[in-house]
Amino acid sequence: MRGIKNLPLYLALTVGGMIFAYPFVWMFFATFKPEMEITGIGLWSADMSIDNYRLVMTKIPIARALLNSLFVSICVTASVLFWGSIVGYALARLKFLGRELILAVILFTMVIPFQITLIPMYILMVKFGWVDTYLSLIVPGMINSFGILLFRQFFRDVPQDLIDAARLDGCNEFQILFRIMWPLSKPVLITVGILAFMGSWNDVLWPLLVIRLETLMTMPQIVTLFAIGGQAEAQIGVQLAAATLLAAPIIILYSFFQKYFIESMASSGLKN
């Protein structure tokens, strides 16, 4: 009964799904097509080949860029978790002078548009001599206000008894944080981790400014440069292949951990 009644609904949802999925599928297949056939609507072509991927590999050091991106994003994520949990813990569970002030400052900085700080930040990197080093990609992202707030919120709900017991056992605050709190905090660690990772992985504007050395470029950066610079020689196939390579790692990760991705991204909105 219900199946039939819901048929239009399923149909609508499927059409919706097609609208979101087909461009990706089309792009994926187009990367295997010869240049002249790419603009067709269909997926299949008589002579599919991996030439486009081979060309991308020879034209830009995309494998190196992948490693750079991985390295940068992992460093940023680890650091956001580490420092974020420390500060978050202090704000949630310790009483000290200026706590409320720091909290207010954090909340305030979250509404400051990054447009203001973009150019001074670039100049700061120049003055530190960090342009064209990993430092310029990692250090400015090492702490994330939103991460701190998420940690604070989570740590506030941990029962005080646990902490008191640990203190009686002679744990200092760092030990409490990493021995007691961290094992309890899997959900918030995953959420903050995914948000930090995604933010760092997908960022283009900042790497475009601070990295000029091809060997240090991140993957989104090198693909952007490839798509609008001259290296693709106006060939669509290679541009799409580069884009596919850029999308692949995240889509693969996503397909394994969809639930976490969706929950984390959603919480980025809800917890405000």
Binding site: V126, V210, I211, I228, G230
Partner: peptide, 20 residues
């Protein structure tokens, strides 16, 4: 290759500023 996006000059200008 020069890491140019829309033009080489924007890259060179920034590189001179950054000493890179």
């Amino acid at each position: 290759p020069i890491p140019a996006s829309q033009s080489s000059e924007e890259v060179l200008l920034a590189a001179i500023a950054g000493g890179t």
